[in-house]
Amino acid sequence: MPEVNGHAPGWPSFAELATPDVKASVGFYRSLFGWYAYTIAVADLGDYEVFSIGDVQGPEVAGMQTLADDAQRPSWACYFRTDDVQGTVDLIKAEGGHELVPPLDVSDLGQMALCADSQGGEFALWRPGNMTGAGVVDEPWAMCWVELACRDVEEARRFYGRVFGWKPLDRDYHDSVYTDFTLGDWPVAGMVQMDERWPASYPAHWIPYFWVEDCDVSAGRAVELGGKIRIPPTDIQPGRYAMLTDPTGARLGIITPTPGLRPPRPGV
Protein backbone atom coordinates (compact mmCIF):
# COMPACT_ATOMS: atom_id res chain seq x y z
CA MET A 1 0.00 0.00 0.00
CA PRO A 2 1.30 3.55 -0.71
CA GLU A 3 1.87 4.67 2.87
CA VAL A 4 2.70 8.35 3.07
CA ASN A 5 4.78 10.36 5.51
CA GLY A 6 3.21 13.71 4.74
CA HIS A 7 0.81 15.74 2.62
CA ALA A 8 1.57 18.84 0.59
CA PRO A 9 -0.14 22.15 1.46
CA GLY A 10 -3.56 22.41 -0.17
CA TRP A 11 -4.01 18.63 -0.40
CA PRO A 12 -6.67 16.63 1.45
CA SER A 13 -4.87 14.99 4.36
CA PHE A 14 -7.47 13.33 6.59
CA ALA A 15 -11.14 12.50 7.01
CA GLU A 16 -13.01 12.63 10.30
CA LEU A 17 -16.48 11.38 11.17
CA ALA A 18 -18.72 13.23 13.61
CA THR A 19 -21.29 10.75 14.91
CA PRO A 20 -24.03 10.64 17.54
CA ASP A 21 -23.31 6.94 18.17
CA VAL A 22 -19.66 5.95 18.38
CA LYS A 23 -20.38 2.27 19.01
CA ALA A 24 -22.70 1.95 16.00
CA SER A 25 -20.27 3.81 13.73
CA VAL A 26 -17.30 1.70 14.81
CA GLY A 27 -19.29 -1.47 14.09
CA PHE A 28 -20.41 -0.23 10.67
CA TYR A 29 -17.02 0.86 9.35
CA ARG A 30 -15.12 -2.08 10.80
CA SER A 31 -17.53 -4.43 9.05
CA LEU A 32 -17.71 -2.45 5.79
CA PHE A 33 -14.03 -1.61 5.28
CA GLY A 34 -12.27 -4.00 7.65
CA TRP A 35 -10.81 -1.08 9.62
CA TYR A 36 -9.30 -1.48 13.06
CA ALA A 37 -10.46 1.05 15.67
CA TYR A 38 -8.71 2.24 18.81
CA THR A 39 -9.13 5.09 21.29
CA ILE A 40 -6.58 7.73 22.21
CA ALA A 41 -6.90 10.32 24.97
CA VAL A 42 -6.35 13.86 23.74
CA ALA A 43 -5.59 16.48 26.37
CA ASP A 44 -8.52 18.87 26.94
CA LEU A 45 -10.59 17.10 24.27
CA GLY A 46 -11.22 13.66 25.75
CA ASP A 47 -11.35 10.36 23.91
CA TYR A 48 -10.80 10.25 20.18
CA GLU A 49 -11.31 7.24 17.92
CA VAL A 50 -8.76 6.39 15.24
CA PHE A 51 -9.44 4.03 12.34
CA SER A 52 -6.43 2.22 10.91
CA ILE A 53 -5.66 -0.54 8.46
CA GLY A 54 -4.47 -3.73 10.11
CA ASP A 55 -4.14 -3.02 13.81
CA VAL A 56 -3.05 -0.34 16.26
CA GLN A 57 0.35 -0.30 14.54
CA GLY A 58 -1.18 0.07 11.07
CA PRO A 59 -1.40 3.35 9.14
CA GLU A 60 -4.17 5.73 10.19
CA VAL A 61 -6.91 6.10 7.62
CA ALA A 62 -9.55 8.27 9.39
CA GLY A 63 -10.70 9.61 12.74
CA MET A 64 -13.97 9.88 14.62
CA GLN A 65 -15.44 11.98 17.39
CA THR A 66 -18.82 12.33 19.06
CA LEU A 67 -21.09 15.11 17.84
CA ALA A 68 -20.80 18.08 20.16
CA ASP A 69 -24.46 19.01 19.71
CA ASP A 70 -27.43 16.73 19.01
CA ALA A 71 -28.79 19.38 16.65
CA GLN A 72 -25.78 18.94 14.34
CA ARG A 73 -25.92 16.71 11.28
CA PRO A 74 -23.78 13.52 11.37
CA SER A 75 -21.11 14.06 8.75
CA TRP A 76 -17.64 13.38 7.46
CA ALA A 77 -15.21 16.32 7.60
CA CYS A 78 -12.43 16.66 5.04
CA TYR A 79 -9.16 18.11 6.33
CA PHE A 80 -6.78 20.11 4.14
CA ARG A 81 -3.11 20.58 4.89
CA THR A 82 -1.71 24.04 5.61
CA ASP A 83 1.55 25.36 6.98
CA ASP A 84 -0.21 28.30 8.69
CA VAL A 85 -3.60 27.59 10.23
CA GLN A 86 -4.25 31.12 11.50
CA GLY A 87 -3.11 32.69 8.24
CA THR A 88 -5.38 30.39 6.23
CA VAL A 89 -8.32 31.12 8.55
CA ASP A 90 -7.75 34.85 8.06
CA LEU A 91 -7.74 34.35 4.29
CA ILE A 92 -10.92 32.24 4.45
CA LYS A 93 -12.71 35.04 6.32
CA ALA A 94 -11.39 37.68 3.92
CA GLU A 95 -12.84 35.66 1.00
CA GLY A 96 -16.32 35.40 2.53
CA GLY A 97 -15.93 32.20 4.55
CA HIS A 98 -16.31 31.65 8.28
CA GLU A 99 -14.34 30.42 11.25
CA LEU A 100 -16.39 27.80 13.13
CA VAL A 101 -13.72 26.49 15.52
CA PRO A 102 -10.66 28.74 15.93
CA PRO A 103 -7.13 27.35 15.59
CA LEU A 104 -6.67 24.72 18.26
CA ASP A 105 -3.63 22.73 19.33
CA VAL A 106 -4.55 19.04 19.47
CA SER A 107 -2.04 17.90 22.07
CA ASP A 108 1.24 17.25 20.24
CA LEU A 109 -0.55 15.80 17.22
CA GLY A 110 -0.98 19.06 15.33
CA GLN A 111 -3.13 22.16 15.01
CA MET A 112 -6.57 22.33 13.45
CA ALA A 113 -9.39 24.75 12.70
CA LEU A 114 -12.92 24.16 11.44
CA CYS A 115 -14.19 26.55 8.79
CA ALA A 116 -16.99 27.05 6.29
CA ASP A 117 -16.67 28.37 2.77
CA SER A 118 -18.69 31.27 1.38
CA GLN A 119 -21.65 28.92 0.73
CA GLY A 120 -21.57 27.22 4.10
CA GLY A 121 -19.65 24.10 3.08
CA GLU A 122 -17.70 22.99 6.14
CA PHE A 123 -14.11 21.77 6.00
CA ALA A 124 -11.13 21.61 8.33
CA LEU A 125 -7.51 22.69 8.27
CA TRP A 126 -4.57 20.70 9.62
CA ARG A 127 -0.98 21.63 10.37
CA PRO A 128 0.75 18.43 11.38
CA GLY A 129 2.75 17.81 14.50
CA ASN A 130 3.36 14.20 15.45
CA MET A 131 0.41 13.15 13.29
CA THR A 132 0.79 13.99 9.62
CA GLY A 133 -2.78 13.00 8.66
CA ALA A 134 -3.81 9.83 6.88
CA GLY A 135 -0.93 7.36 6.83
CA VAL A 136 -2.20 5.64 3.69
CA VAL A 137 -4.13 6.91 0.66
CA ASP A 138 -5.21 5.77 -2.80
CA GLU A 139 -5.42 2.08 -1.90
CA PRO A 140 -8.30 -0.28 -1.08
CA TRP A 141 -10.06 0.74 2.15
CA ALA A 142 -8.33 4.14 2.26
CA MET A 143 -9.47 7.62 1.25
CA CYS A 144 -8.80 8.29 -2.42
CA TRP A 145 -10.82 11.43 -3.28
CA VAL A 146 -12.78 14.30 -1.74
CA GLU A 147 -15.69 16.13 -3.34
CA LEU A 148 -17.63 19.34 -2.80
CA ALA A 149 -21.33 19.58 -3.60
CA CYS A 150 -22.59 23.17 -3.83
CA ARG A 151 -25.04 25.33 -5.74
CA ASP A 152 -22.83 28.16 -6.99
CA VAL A 153 -19.87 26.50 -8.70
CA GLU A 154 -18.43 29.78 -9.97
CA GLU A 155 -18.26 31.13 -6.44
CA ALA A 156 -16.62 27.90 -5.24
CA ARG A 157 -14.03 28.16 -8.01
CA ARG A 158 -13.23 31.70 -6.89
CA PHE A 159 -13.16 30.90 -3.17
CA TYR A 160 -10.97 27.80 -3.26
CA GLY A 161 -8.72 29.31 -5.89
CA ARG A 162 -7.95 32.18 -3.55
CA VAL A 163 -7.66 30.07 -0.39
CA PHE A 164 -5.71 27.03 -1.64
CA GLY A 165 -4.50 28.13 -5.07
CA TRP A 166 -6.60 25.46 -6.80
CA LYS A 167 -7.27 25.72 -10.53
CA PRO A 168 -10.56 24.40 -11.98
CA LEU A 169 -10.62 21.87 -14.79
CA ASP A 170 -14.10 21.07 -16.12
CA ARG A 171 -15.09 17.80 -17.79
CA ASP A 172 -18.36 16.31 -18.99
CA TYR A 173 -20.27 14.32 -16.40
CA HIS A 174 -23.39 12.67 -17.84
CA ASP A 175 -25.66 15.66 -18.60
CA SER A 176 -23.73 18.16 -16.47
CA VAL A 177 -20.20 19.38 -15.79
CA TYR A 178 -17.82 18.01 -13.19
CA THR A 179 -14.96 20.16 -11.91
CA ASP A 180 -11.58 18.82 -10.93
CA PHE A 181 -9.59 21.15 -8.70
CA THR A 182 -5.89 20.89 -9.45
CA LEU A 183 -2.58 21.98 -7.96
CA GLY A 184 -0.05 22.07 -10.73
CA ASP A 185 -0.78 19.02 -12.87
CA TRP A 186 -2.32 17.05 -10.03
CA PRO A 187 -6.06 16.66 -9.31
CA VAL A 188 -6.68 17.13 -5.60
CA ALA A 189 -10.48 17.39 -5.25
CA GLY A 190 -13.74 17.46 -7.22
CA MET A 191 -16.96 19.47 -7.34
CA VAL A 192 -20.53 18.80 -8.43
CA GLN A 193 -23.37 21.27 -8.69
CA MET A 194 -26.41 20.78 -6.46
CA ASP A 195 -29.52 21.13 -8.63
CA GLU A 196 -33.29 20.85 -8.16
CA ARG A 197 -32.93 17.18 -7.23
CA TRP A 198 -31.43 18.26 -3.91
CA PRO A 199 -33.70 19.40 -1.06
CA ALA A 200 -33.64 23.18 -0.88
CA SER A 201 -32.55 23.04 2.76
CA TYR A 202 -29.57 20.75 2.15
CA PRO A 203 -26.34 22.70 2.64
CA ALA A 204 -23.18 22.69 0.59
CA HIS A 205 -20.90 19.96 1.88
CA TRP A 206 -17.67 18.03 1.43
CA ILE A 207 -17.51 14.22 1.46
CA PRO A 208 -14.65 11.71 1.24
CA TYR A 209 -14.53 8.76 -1.13
CA PHE A 210 -13.04 5.45 -0.02
CA TRP A 211 -11.51 2.91 -2.39
CA VAL A 212 -13.27 -0.47 -2.40
CA GLU A 213 -12.36 -3.57 -4.37
CA ASP A 214 -15.92 -4.19 -5.64
CA CYS A 215 -18.35 -1.26 -5.55
CA ASP A 216 -21.46 -3.42 -5.95
CA VAL A 217 -20.48 -5.81 -3.18
CA SER A 218 -19.56 -2.99 -0.78
CA ALA A 219 -22.79 -1.08 -1.51
CA GLY A 220 -24.82 -4.21 -0.81
CA ARG A 221 -22.85 -4.84 2.37
CA ALA A 222 -23.50 -1.27 3.54
CA VAL A 223 -27.25 -1.87 3.27
CA GLU A 224 -26.95 -5.12 5.23
CA LEU A 225 -25.19 -3.15 7.97
CA GLY A 226 -27.92 -0.51 8.20
CA GLY A 227 -26.71 2.06 5.69
CA LYS A 228 -28.60 3.40 2.68
CA ILE A 229 -27.69 3.75 -0.99
CA ARG A 230 -28.28 7.31 -2.27
CA ILE A 231 -26.77 6.78 -5.73
CA PRO A 232 -26.54 3.12 -6.80
CA PRO A 233 -23.32 1.70 -8.25
CA THR A 234 -22.73 3.61 -11.49
CA ASP A 235 -19.99 3.54 -14.11
CA ILE A 236 -18.16 6.81 -14.75
CA GLN A 237 -14.78 7.44 -16.36
CA PRO A 238 -12.81 7.35 -13.07
CA GLY A 239 -14.41 4.04 -12.06
CA ARG A 240 -17.57 2.54 -10.60
CA TYR A 241 -18.93 4.53 -7.68
CA ALA A 242 -21.86 4.74 -5.27
CA MET A 243 -23.04 7.29 -2.77
CA LEU A 244 -24.07 6.05 0.67
CA THR A 245 -25.26 7.19 4.05
CA ASP A 246 -24.13 5.25 7.09
CA PRO A 247 -26.61 4.19 9.81
CA THR A 248 -26.37 7.61 11.51
CA GLY A 249 -26.98 9.51 8.24
CA ALA A 250 -23.42 10.63 7.41
CA ARG A 251 -22.77 10.76 3.65
CA LEU A 252 -19.75 9.14 2.01
CA GLY A 253 -18.70 7.87 -1.38
CA ILE A 254 -17.16 4.56 -2.38
CA ILE A 255 -15.41 3.86 -5.66
CA THR A 256 -13.61 1.08 -7.46
CA PRO A 257 -11.22 3.15 -9.59
CA THR A 258 -10.48 2.47 -13.23
CA PRO A 259 -6.99 0.91 -13.18
CA GLY A 260 -4.21 3.28 -14.17
CA LEU A 261 -6.47 6.25 -14.89
CA ARG A 262 -5.51 8.58 -12.03
CA PRO A 263 -1.80 9.25 -11.55
CA PRO A 264 -0.43 8.52 -8.08
CA ARG A 265 -0.18 11.56 -5.85
CA PRO A 266 3.30 13.04 -5.69
CA GLY A 267 5.47 11.93 -2.82
CA VAL A 268 6.00 14.32 0.05
Score class of each variant (00 low, 15 high):
Val26Leu: 05
Thr179Pro: 03
Asp246Phe: 03
Val42Ala: 01
Phe28Ser: 07
Ile53Glu: 09
Asp185Met: 08
Met112Pro: 01
Val146Trp: 05
Gln65Thr: 11
Gly133His: 06
Gln111Phe: 03
Val101Tyr: 07
Tyr48Glu: 04
Gly227Lys: 02
Ile92Asn: 00
Leu244Met: 07
Arg240Glu: 04
Pro257Tyr: 01
His174Met: 15
Gly54Val: 04
Met243Asp: 04
Pro59Asn: 00
His174Val: 15
Trp126His: 01
Gln111Ala: 08
Leu183Val: 12
Cys78Asn: 11
Gly129His: 04
Ala94Met: 10
Val106Leu: 04
Trp35Ile: 13
Phe14Asn: 10
Phe51Gly: 02
Pro20Glu: 08
Arg151Trp: 03
Cys215Arg: 03
Gly27Glu: 14
Glu154Ile: 10
Asn130Trp: 05
Cys150Phe: 07
Arg240Trp: 09
Asp84Pro: 06
Gly120Val: 00
Val163Cys: 05
Ala149Gly: 11
Ile53Cys: 02
Arg262Phe: 12
Gly6Val: 11
Asp172Arg: 11
Trp76His: 02
Tyr209His: 11
Pro203Ile: 02
Val223Asp: 06
Asp105Ser: 10
Phe14His: 14
Pro232Tyr: 03
Val22Phe: 02
Val85Asn: 03
Pro9Cys: 07
Thr258Cys: 07
Glu99Cys: 14
Asp214Ala: 12
Gln86Glu: 12
Met64Glu: 00
Gly46Met: 04
Pro102His: 01
Arg81Trp: 04
Ala77Met: 14
Ala94Asn: 13
Met131Pro: 01
Ala242Leu: 00
Pro168Glu: 07
Arg197Phe: 10
Gly239Pro: 09
Tyr79Ile: 07
Phe181Met: 07
Arg197Cys: 09
Asp70Ile: 10
Arg221Val: 14
Leu32Gly: 10
Val4Glu: 02
Lys23Ser: 15
Lys228Arg: 14
Arg30Leu: 11
Tyr241Thr: 06
Glu122Gln: 15
Trp126Arg: 01
Gln72Cys: 06
Arg127Ile: 10
Arg262Gly: 05
His205Asp: 07
Val56Cys: 03
Ala219Met: 07
Gly135Thr: 08
Pro232Asn: 03
Ala113Ser: 12
Cys150His: 05
Ala200Phe: 09
Val146Pro: 01
Pro203Ala: 11
Leu225Asp: 08
Val137Ser: 03
Pro238Phe: 02
Gly34Glu: 05
Ala77Pro: 00
